[in-house]
Amino acid sequence: MHLNTVSHGMPDNMKHQMLDNICCPVCKEALSLKAEKENDVEILAGFLTCKKCKFDYLIQEGIPNLLPPELQKTM
C-alpha cells in the first residue's frame, strides 16, 4: 500500500483507488478501510475489514497484512 508520489506519482485520491482490487485472502470478499494514520500519499496504519468474515486485517507501516487469519499469529 505504498502510495508515494515523488516522481512517478498519482493524484492524492489514488490511495483509495489502490484498494480497488484488494480482497479477503480467504473468502475473496471486499474489504472496507479504516485508516488510522495517513499522509497525503499513503495509508500508514489502520484496518481492512472483511465485509463477510469480519476479520480485521492490520495495516502497519504502509503494508497490509493479508495472510489468512489463522496463520497471522504464527507468521
Binding site: M1, H2, L3, N4, T5, V6, S7, H8, G9, M10, M14, M18, N21, I22, C23, C24, P25, V26, V41, Y57, I63, P64, N65, L66, L67, P68
Partner: peptide, 17 residues
Amino acid sequence: GFGNVEFRKGYIHQLPV
C-alpha cells in the same frame, strides 16, 4: 518515488486480489 507500486503481505496461493 514509485507511486504506482504497492506491496501486500500475503500468500501467493491465497492471493488478496
